[in-house]
């Protein structure tokens, strides 16, 4: 029996394996919305009945709302900050050639591969050693370090399609520097920038370890959820909150992907010569 026929025999099991794999991956997440709509304080089957009261309870939970607000502030700040830094880095890497370029790019990407908890502990040590008080600002700074690599990789692929001669063509056709930035530079790289904002916001929104170490007395949503898990009675509320966050994340990532594809389609052909 040849190797090929051996392989073919295993093949019928492949779809089953894939199905199992996805089940294992996504079933727990699917349970989240299911139990969040269940009229019982425990997460056990059979389901007790349909209710939206857990969602209603969220609205009146001022501590939770404060945490959500913190998360929003942190998320917006982190996404703006890391995208701005990412733009600088991506432009440097795609537009210029300089000594140590590869090393610089590598160092910027490094936080992606370092254990997050190690980074968190080191940052905490430094912050404490410097006598800085833990606050949302320290969370923002910590998460920015972490998000810049994501921002940069999204932006680099966006900028790579951007050719210097586009700006020159615009000047050549009579446009001013400001007009060129507005009519050419910005529209061409805008999808990449929006993608970067969305990706980094999403990452910040559910980042836990850095926020846990660096947030002090102002919890972000993940830190708040972590605190609530100690009280069994709070669980359904947490599930409802988790569902809301899940839906928000999925929406944002979908939007990002749509934008990325649109940008890709645009730049793809415009510069590839026949």
């Amino acid at each position: 029996m040849s190797l090929l026929t051996q392989r073919l025999r295993v093949l019928p099991f492949l779809p089953a394996y894939v199905a199992l794999y996805f089940l294992f991956l996504y079933l727990p997440i699917l349970l989240l919305p299911v139990f969040s709509l269940n009229d019982a304080a425990t997460t056990t089957f059979p389901l007790a009945g349909f209710t939206t009261k857990w969602y209603a309870s969220l609205a009146g939970n001022s501590v939770m709302l404060q945490a959500a607000w913190n998360s929003l502030v942190v998320g917006v700040a982190v996404s703006l900050l890391s995208t701005v830094l990412g733009i600088c880095a991506a432009r440097a890497i795609t537009r210029y050639r300089f000594r140590g370029q590869r090393a610089a790019a590598g160092l910027i990407m490094a936080p992606l591969f370092l254990p997050e908890i190690i980074v968190a502990v080191s940052l905490l040590m430094i912050v404490l050693a410097m006598g800085v008080e833990l606050s949302l600002i320290t969370v923002i700074l910590g998460q920015t370090v972490f998000c810049v690599p994501y921002a940069m990789s999204v932006l680099v692929s966006g900028f790579e399609g951007f050719d210097r001669s586009l700006e020159e063509a615009s000047y050549d056709l009579g446009e001013t520097a400001i007009g060129t930035f507005r009519r050419v530079t910005l529209p061409v790289v805008a999808p990449a920038i929006v993608s970067s904002l969305l990706v980094t916001f999403t990452i910040s929104l559910d980042e836990f370890i850095l926020a846990f170490f660096l947030s002090g007395t102002e919890p972000t949503l993940p830190v708040y959820i972590w605190g609530q898990l100690r009280f069994a009675a709070k669980l359904p509320g947490v599930l409802a909150l988790g569902t809301v966050m899940l839906v928000a994340s999925i929406l944002m990532l979908t939007l990002t992907e749509i934008l990325r594809r649109r940008a890709e389609r645009r730049t793809q052909m415009a510069f590839t010569l026949p």
């Binding site: 399609g161 050719d163 001669s165 586009l166 020159e168 063509a169 615009s170 050419v184 529209p187 061409v188 645009r266 730049t267 052909m269 415009a270 510069f271 010569l273």
Partner: peptide, 9 residues
């Protein structure tokens, strides 16, 4: 331009 520099958007 040599690469035509057509505005992609």
């Amino acid at each position: 331009f040599q690469n035509y520099a057509i505005f992609p958007h």
